[in-house]
Write a protein that binds this DNA or RNA. Sequence first.
DNA 1: AAAAATGTTCTCGTTCCGCGTACACATTTG
DNA 2: CAAATGTGTACGCGGAACGAGAACATTTTT
Lengths: 125, 125
Amino acid sequence: MMNLNRLMALRKERNWSLQYVSDQLGMAKSTYAGYESGYRRPSLEAIAAMADLFHTSVDYILGRVDEPGTYTEPPNSQAEKMIDLNHLTNYTLSVDGRVLSEEEIRQFVAFIKTKWELEQPARSK
Amino acid sequence: MMNLNRLMALRKERNWSLQYVSDQLGMAKSTYAGYESGYRRPSLEAIAAMADLFHTSVDYILGRVDEPGTYTEPPNSQAEKMIDLNHLTNYTLSVDGRVLSEEEIRQFVAFIKTKWELEQPARSK
DNA sequence: AAAAATGTTCTCGTTCCGCGTACACATTTG
DNA sequence: CAAATGTGTACGCGGAACGAGAACATTTTT
């Protein structure tokens, strides 16, 4: 399940007590303690307030990103895996759980190529 | 109060229906509709699933940041080589070195789905 | 030593989440 | 045209779980 175990680390890094954090957030000590222990789950507003207090992002508290810094988009976000539809050997494509046949992919490639050609017709002058 | 009015924009940008989104998220249509209207508030796991589906961050849905990007694929324990075109996240498709836009992939998915429907007129729930 | 602070766990009252359902409207199908 | 299907909205209900407070053990401070 989705844990919030990064909360305690964020707090201890700053040497803050449960009482201090819960005071800053305007909630009972036991309430915030429940978040850290996993006994309770914070509301959206509570977790947003925690992200503000710790100067981090909600996604970091949720463990969805690894950078604690408040949301700075790296310009090289194209570090994804590039898959060439002309020679895809190690991958299978699916839609709604159903696998696409090679024929269907070939048809799509042909379709896209024609589409691009039509978009770039003017070679005039 | 904290609004989630970006949800509807994210859905309409993709021309998705409430039924489709709620199916993808595994919840009732009325439940997801409650999120968009502000009638209900999603759990942390629900909003994380929505961020995954819309290929964005929880902070963006919450309105804490303005950039829709910033996303790192969550630990997905599914089959490695199976790529679902509905949730294209950390993959980029290309043909002859040119990258396919998300819109083009969406069009292709829509095309394939209608093709399959025509091939199989039998309907089951 | 006492006193204060800190962290943990429990109960209780109440909020409100999620689902099913029904409805109005739009779109598609026969 | 009407019927059927898709789409968006609103409501009631059962139950999950939230938040606060209190009690307690442990640690730190005075």
